[in-house]
Design a binder for these strands. Structure first.
Lengths: 220, 220
DNA sequence: CTACATTGACTGAATGTTCAGTCTAGAAAC
DNA sequence: GTTTCTAGACTGAACATTCAGTCAATGTAG
């Protein structure tokens, strides 16, 4: 129906995106190593041959899909945080993104992370996606801390040590949440993380009513 | 360990052990999903057919191998800790086991954990290995905390909250270490973990000279 | 305007390999 | 002589990738 300007090159990009999103869905369902080209093709409504036509190899497709997913996750988070005025509030949002599945897309992200880590061991391309993602994430945290310190919200901790520690803590909790560990539900993970952050950074945190958390998560 | 008189049942058990250890080595090298029966057989110096004879299926072999590895790791740790008198010392040993590769076997464990997590998502047998392993581990930590509190070494924190938080922190750091993250070396991970533990439990920790850490790790 | 050429998107049917698991039969233990 | 172990050869299915070409759109020369 739409012969918009851009035409050819445009549909090609759409196709790629379509396939990447399909790949992410399949990876979440079947896991990285069990994902077949045929699955992705079927999900995207095309043929295996076309998938290979766009991405030379299976690994390239899957790696690119992981990069795409991480970028999307990160961008969404950045947008969310940009809307929050106080550093403590932004920190809380950041923790919520890592712990609470209510934060829309999150649910599948954890599963992707597990695969991302496992594949990083042996696929250099994947390893580099992960390394960049992690650095960016810690950078986000530590500059948030610096901002909070300048604003007088936070005490004088080493921002990088804090970023490293919280991000590790959140990763560890994410594993438990992703795997439905019987003794760690998202709420508890959120609570423990916030208590840790508050004690380290020296701000008061008394928990928020679910109401308010909902509101913060749902704004667009 | 093994009585010589056993005969058949004995050699059968030896064979199993041999194959399980071979499987662990291969999983560390190639990753869980890429491990072939033929690899394990070759490593154990037998035929693929024999591997199937002992373990009905590939998944059974690999799952049992993971269980075997985790049990071995945990038992070794328990033995080490039993030899240390103070609660703070035992805690330090426990953190060292998770962070420092010097603690002999550890190096491969991290890689196994990544696979353990990733496979837990879809293989219930593996999930149950993981769940039990984690519970046991947190249990170890929290009873250590209680012991330390009774001995007056530690302040009054909630032992279970602490166990959950530290174990998550250690898991997160283990990921970085396993993947050779450029900004997290084992020493730093150890340092950050101990600082966290000390601040939470309210004991003094000033770091140990490498000398002493070596001694503690190398005892047999 | 028409015929022909070119190109990018796309497909169905091979191709070839890799493996988990089976089968058969021999050796060893009891 | 029966049961337990062991290995080499084999089978069948799964799958990534290749190939040979179709189709539609966009020039382009006469």
């Amino acid at each position: 129906m739409s012969e918009r300007a851009g035409g050819v090159a445009d549909t090609a990009d759409q196709r790629r995106g379509q396939m990447l999103r399909a790949a992410i869905e399949v990876i979440e369902e079947r896991g990285f190593p069990e994902t077949r080209i045929a699955d992705v093709a079927a999900r995207a409504g095309t043929s295996p041959a076309l998938v290979i036509y766009y991405f030379k190899t299976k690994d390239q497709l899957l790696t690119e899909a992981l990069r795409y997913a991480e970028d999307t996750w990160y961008e969404a988070g950045k947008r969310r945080m940009a809307a929050i005025p106080s550093a403590a509030g932004r920190l809380e949002e950041l923790v919520a993104m890592s712990c609470l599945p209510e934060a829309d897309q999150a649910a599948g992200s954890w599963l992707l992370w597990l695969d991302l880590w496992a594949q990083s061991v042996r696929l250099p391309e994947v390893a580099s996606v992960r390394q960049k993602f992690d650095e960016r994430w810690r950078q986000t945290i530590s500059s948030l801390v610096l901002a909070g310190q300048e604003a007088g919200e936070f005490g004088p901790v080493n921002a990088e040590d804090f970023a490293l520690t919280v991000s590790a803590l959140l990763d560890g909790l994410a594993v438990q949440i992703a795997l439905h560990d019987t003794s760690v539900d998202p709420e508890r993970a959120f609570e423990l993380s916030m208590r840790f952050a508050a004690s380290q950074l020296g701000f008061d945190w008394a928990g928020r009513p679910a109401q308010e958390r909902m509101t913060a998560s749902q704004r667009d």
